[in-house]
Design a protein around this nucleic acid. Structure first.
Ligand SMILES: NC(=O)c1ccc[n+]([C@@H]2O[C@H](COP(=O)([O-])OP(=O)(O)OC[C@H]3O[C@@H](n4cnc5c(N)ncnc54)[C@H](O)[C@@H]3O)[C@@H](O)[C@H]2O)c1
Ligand SMILES: NC(=O)c1ccc[n+]([C@@H]2O[C@H](COP(=O)([O-])OP(=O)(O)OC[C@H]3O[C@@H](n4cnc5c(N)ncnc54)[C@H](O)[C@@H]3O)[C@@H](O)[C@H]2O)c1
Lengths: 218, 218
DNA sequence: CATTATTCGATATCATTATATCGATATGAT
DNA sequence: ATCATATCGATATAATGATATCGAATAATG
């Protein structure tokens, strides 16, 4: 017999990506004192279909919706936060304390998402040794050693694209299980390592394609 | 009869997102003096299937591959750059000159992707009036008026999530056609406006889910 | 100059994701 | 108490995206 999810539903990649949006909105509603919410009303807000909203909810929550009224906001929030790992904290290191790296280090929002950057690294001797937003910056030779000793599961890459693969290899040598990559390059990694790309060039590609179509059709 | 693409192929959303990766790699190969490349070799590098690579290439390029050898690197580069709009320049404005906004303003890479941030806005009276990385920052009351007068097609949002919808509305009032949104909220917009989200919470959700599964299965 | 190995493109199949249909159930109105 | 209506969940269908199959083309090898 097949192994199944607790709720006997599969949580698709696309659904996972939608969860933070639902969560943000549900928290806003909760802040306004709203206790019950229906799939159609959520769907209207996001411009989704109500069927999709129901499916997404049933995939992450044991909470059943009540016909004619809807779902309990608080329970949805709790279940989504659990699914997204916001109730625990994942430790991460960041490599590349430049423009973007500094912005990420200073960002307080990640703690709400269960992510804590505990150490940073940079090649530049000026930067290594400093402290940015309360986080110590070390020389990049220490990446593998420190990651392993601190048992860090996540590495964040914000170095130039030419250095990204090298840094990636160092992180993996340090036992990191997942990499969040902001450099606009493909990283080669072993099967069991996840690379989550935040490639702004890819976003821009979609944006630019859309504009082009607009212009042609107008 | 149906209207078709020049090459009689459809370019899917997913394929568009892959293009910047191909392009980066092809340029690297060109820099190494490599003139011909095969689909299987590209596929090996990206861990894609060779069928997908061929489909992607044929969707963006009129260039035919030669059996037993492959595709002409230069021609692929040229066609991809055209498709991605790198040969022209789209003007953009950025709203929210904080940690992230400053990083984006200072980033030189966007010019390679056909994007030029020409003006920025901020609510803070200290920031408005200043100049960051050569870009003038104005008070946010001027968003709509300036965008309209300069005929700006793209707005970049890097304000706190509570201000994002307001700013979005101001940009649309200014005639902007596409919005690149870094705030972790859904933005409500008219049908003809594109919102491209760069939601780091969504990325983190996938990352965290992956780690959880790793831990369970190990 | 024939043979073999490799890559190509076209078409077919499979997987994932989104949407539509429909009977069941709870709430509020008559 | 009954009826109308909004919402629910389950199952079915459609759309999009990825992979497999196969004959044709061409470069290298003997
Ligand atoms: N700044 C942005 O807004 C932005 C936007 C999109 C993408 N990116 C990407 O993010 C990355 C960083 O961009 P940035 O603007 O912050 O660049 P940056 O030059 O400001 O910072 C890069 C930092 O990495 C360090 N570094 C270089 N090689 C290293 C190595 N081998 N080990 C450790 N540290 C090393 C440098 O010393 C520097 O501090 C780039 O890949 C860029 O393409 C940045
Ligand atoms: N900093 C990061 O690394 C990071 C990472 C992920 C997401 N984000 C998101 O990006 C956005 C900006 O983050 P940040 O860290 O740069 O914040 P920040 O507070 O440093 O900057 C926000 C800026 O927006 C300005 N602002 C506020 N309301 C405005 C309005 N109505 N009109 C014009 N300007 C206004 C503020 O004056 C400030 O300069 C947030 O939504 C945040 O969630 C940031």
């Amino acid at each position: 017999m097949e192994e199944h999810n607790r709720e006997n539903h599969i949580l698709s990649t696309q659904a996972i990506k939608r969860m933070p949006y639902y969560l943000q909105y549900l928290k806003k509603l909760a802040g306004e004192g709203i206790e019950i919410v229906s799939a159609p009303s959520i769907a209207a807000h996001f411009n989704f279909t109500e069927i999709q909203v129901r499916k997404d909810f049933s995939a992450v929550s044991t909470t059943k919706g009540k016909p004619k009224s809807g779902f309990t906001v608080k329970e949805l929030i709790y279940d989504m936060e659990s699914i997204l790992g916001y109730h625990s904290v994942n430790q991460a290191v960041l490599v590349g304390v430049g423009q973007l790296g500094r912005a990420l280090l200073s960002y307080r929002g990640f703690e709400n998402y269960g992510l804590k950057i505990v150490v940073a690294f940079d090649q530049d001797p000026e930067t290594a040794g400093s402290k940015i937003a309360g986080v110590n910056v070390f020389a990049s030779e220490k990446i593998s050693d420190l990651c392993r000793r601190m048992n860090i599961p996540i590495g964040i890459i914000t170095v130039p694209e030419t250095a990204a693969q090298t840094v990636c290899d160092q992180l993996i040598a340090g036992g990191v299980k997942a990499i969040w990559n902001f450099a606009p390059v493909h990283l080669s990694v072993p099967q069991n390592i996840l690379v989550q790309n935040e490639n702004m060039a890819a976003s821009l590609a979609l944006l630019s394609k859309h504009l082009e179509e607009k212009i042609v059709s107008e």
